[in-house]
């Protein structure tokens, strides 16, 4: 498990996205324990302070919760997980639509192209986001 980091973006945001992706795709189930700061730092070869910050942000957003003496866990609220999924989808869509508009497509055409494309292709697992899993 490694992340190809983009040094131009804050690392903690990239790790947040990575963990959210793991949650949304079910690799980290609801209520499951999240690796410790030390372990994740060693695994991703990242400064532990950065991981610490990532976790703090995740807690602030309600994605993770820490239980005293036990560690950190993924939230068990399904709504929260759904919300993350929607949020990530929104980000993807925003970037996609922005790109399409730059190419000169209007709203109708974008919808049409997407509809055609979805019919042609079998649905894929996951998807591509920034901070892709390598």
């Amino acid at each position: 498990m490694t992340i190809e980091f983009d040094n131009n973006l804050p690392i903690y945001l990239q790790i947040m996205n990575y963990i959210k992706l793991q949650i949304v795709t079910g690799k980290l189930g609801p209520g499951e324990k999240i690796p410790s700061v030390r372990d994740l730092a060693a695994e991703l070869k990242i400064n532990p302070n950065t991981i610490q910050r990532t976790f703090q942000e995740l807690e602030r957003e309600g994605v993770a919760e820490s239980r005293r003496g036990l560690g950190r866990f993924v939230t068990s609220e399904d709504e929260k997980i759904m919300a993350i999924k929607k949020e990530m989808a929104a980000e993807l869509l925003e970037r996609f639509i922005g790109g399409m508009r730059e190419l000169g497509f209007d709203n109708q055409n974008i919808v049409k192209i997407v509809a055609e494309s979805v019919e042609e292709k079998q649905p894929e697992e996951g998807g591509h986001t920034r901070g892709t899993i390598a």
Partner: peptide, 15 residues
């Protein structure tokens, strides 16, 4: 702070 550099300038430290 490096994250501050990335956040504010959108640049890597190297850049």
């Amino acid at each position: 702070e490096v994250e501050q550099i990335r956040m504010e300038s959108g640049k890597s430290v190297d850049q």
